[in-house]
Amino acid sequence: MKIRIKFRKYGSMKFIGHLDIMRYFQKAIRRAEISIAYSEGFSPHQIMSFAAPLGVGLMSNGEYLDIVCREPLTMNGTQMKEAMNQVMVEGVEIVSVRALPEDAGNAMASVAAARYTVCFREGYEPDFDWKSQLEKFYQKLTIPVIKQTKKSTKELDLKPSIYELFVREENGQAAIEMLVDASSAGNIKPGLVLEAFYKENGADGLEEAALLITREDTYGDRGTGETHEFVPLEDFGEEF
């Protein structure tokens, strides 16, 4: 049976990279004695897939991994969630455990968008009036940026990939919230949006350490193709 697990990652755990989070969950699932299924072959591995890798330094309230469990199940969803939370460290919390329909696509392929909150670290606030400028920035028809990958640099228009962008309150502080493309083909990092925003306002290069970024959730798309209907990945599954 396919099972989707949603978790939060916060505090010092934000320094644990994606590959190590995978290793962490492999061990955690053994500690929790979840009856996960294994691949065939000489060195069997757990059948497990993660939705969207989260960069080092980012926190998240909506990370996902899918696993396959052997049947009959030894625990229901609530028990599984509890068993896993028993063996977590501070900084990782299981939020929900749901059963996926058999034909559901795996977590990674399902990712369409992600919502982020971006705060400025103390002492790193930009020196232009960013709160009022943000809306103007988002009103633009095109937002051209240079996207650098390991192999190439290419020009690209961010605008169609930003689904929402606005200022809101977070713990009594102003923060930027955005919903952006997170699909494997068009993934946009929040830093890239901010960089373009800085540039637009003639501000100097954005320092890497300036932003405190939290991924709020990860979404699939139930839209028709022409229109989007973003749904949190957990909503593709059901309690069991």
């Binding site: 505090g11 010092s12 755990m13 320094f15 644990i16 990279g17 190590d20 061990k27 955690a28 500690r31 080092v56 330094g57 063996v87 460290v89 501070e90 900084g91 890497e208 350490a209």
Partner: peptide
């Protein structure tokens, strides 16, 4: 800032299982 700058910050944060 320092933890993001050094190789393998997990070496310095403790909190292991």
């Amino acid at each position: 800032e320092i933890l993001l700058q050094v190789d393998k910050p997990a070496r310095y944060i403790g909190n292991e299982v």
